[in-house]
Simulated scan of single mutants.
Amino acid sequence: MRSSKALLAPLTWDHLWTSYFFLSANLLTIVTLTRGRCGLSKCISRYLLAMAIADLMVLIAIIISTEIKDMYLPVSFLDYTPVCSFIFVLSVDAIDCSVWLTVAFTVDRFIAICLQKLGAKYCTEKTAMMVIMVVYIFSFTLNIGFYFIFEPAETIDDIPLSCIIKSTFYTSPAWMAYDWLRTILTPFIPFVLISLLNTLTIMHITRATRIRRKLLGSRKYGCPCDPETEKRRKSIILLLTISGSFILLWVVNLVYKVFVIFTDGMLFHGDYSNPLTILGESGFMLQCLSSCTNTVIYALAQNKFRAEIAILLKSPFVLASTFIKFCSK
Rank of each mutant, 00 (worst) to 15 (best):
S3V: 02
S4W: 00
S4C: 15
K5F: 10
A9G: 07
L11F: 02
T12M: 03
H15Q: 15
W17R: 07
S19D: 08
Y20S: 09
F21P: 02
A25S: 14
L27A: 15
I30E: 07
I30S: 03
T32W: 00
R37Q: 14
I44K: 05
Y47W: 09
M51Y: 01
I53G: 04
D55L: 02
D55R: 05
L59R: 03
A61Q: 06
I63N: 10
S65P: 00
S65V: 05
E67Y: 11
K69N: 12
D70Y: 12
L73H: 09
P74H: 01
L78F: 15
Y80H: 11
V83T: 13
C84W: 00
C84A: 09
S85I: 03
I87S: 04
F88E: 05
S91Q: 11
D93A: 15
A94E: 01
S98A: 15
W100T: 01
L101V: 05
V103W: 01
T106L: 06
R109F: 03
I113S: 05
I113F: 03
K117S: 08
Y122P: 01
Y122A: 03
M129R: 13
M130I: 15
I132A: 01
V134Y: 07
F140Y: 14
F140C: 11
G145V: 11
F150I: 00
P152Q: 03
T155A: 00
I156C: 05
I159Y: 08
L161G: 01
S162L: 14
C163A: 10
C163T: 06
I165Q: 04
T168H: 09
T168L: 13
F169P: 00
T171R: 11
T171W: 08
A174R: 13
W175S: 08
S195H: 05
S195G: 07
S195V: 02
T199W: 14
I202G: 03
I202C: 09
I205N: 02
A208E: 12
R210H: 08
K214T: 09
G217E: 04
K220N: 07
C223M: 08
D226P: 04
P227L: 04
K231M: 11
K231Q: 09
R232D: 08
R233L: 13
I237R: 11
I237C: 10
L239A: 06
L248I: 15
N253W: 10
L254P: 04
K257E: 08
V258H: 03
F259K: 08
F262R: 06
G265E: 02
G265V: 06
M266V: 15
M266I: 15
M266R: 15
L267V: 14
D271F: 03
S273W: 08
I278S: 12
G283Q: 06
G283L: 05
M285I: 12
C288Y: 03
L289F: 14
C292K: 07
C292F: 06
C292L: 10
T293F: 09
N294W: 10
K304I: 06
R306I: 02
A307C: 04
L312D: 08
K314S: 08
S315G: 00
F323N: 06
I324H: 04
F326S: 09
C327P: 01
